[in-house]
Amino acid sequence: MWIYEKKLQYPVKVRECNPRLAKYLIEQYGGADGELAAALRYLNQRYTIPDKVIGLLTDIGTEEFAHLEMIATMIYKLTKDATPEQLKAAGIEDHYVNHDNALFYQNAAGVPFTASYIQAKGDPIADLYEDIAAEEKARATYQWIIDMSDDPDLNDGLRFLREREIVHSQRFREAVELLKDERDRKKIF
């Protein structure tokens, strides 16, 4: 069960109407290494992982939904009140034709979200290594979006999200250490 707090994890500010940036950001919304994929991946892996790291997956998976909500807000603000002409100039007229200004779970190239983005191998080490890789890939994606963006307010929010990827990666790495821990055993190697 979840409890919803009706505010964003970090304030989202956008300086100007910029549909092109929204096109890039949709990668973190419905892309393979996006926030939706992350949330669903971690929350799904919880059932087949040792007890001592289930809580970590719950916490991080939940936070990914908070990030998803921030990304959605960014995309919404960047395209709100944009005219069809502006959307066309930004190269997202095909999105407009299909969805108007609605958000859709797809990547920056318009490919719809698919469950095959998410692995669940059942092996705790394999799954946690995938989670670490996912965090690093999301971190890199945020870097490339920041590189493309000239909106300082938006970048402030993106920097926060990138920092969270770093912390999540750290915690998954610690989870691996927990699972391979030898401290309880007599060390006769």
Binding site: I146, D147, M148, D150, N155, R159, E163, V167
Partner: peptide
């Protein structure tokens, strides 16, 4: 753990 990333712009 703080490592802020800034773009070229």
């Amino acid at each position: 753990f703080y490592d802020p990333y800034y773009g070229p712009k």
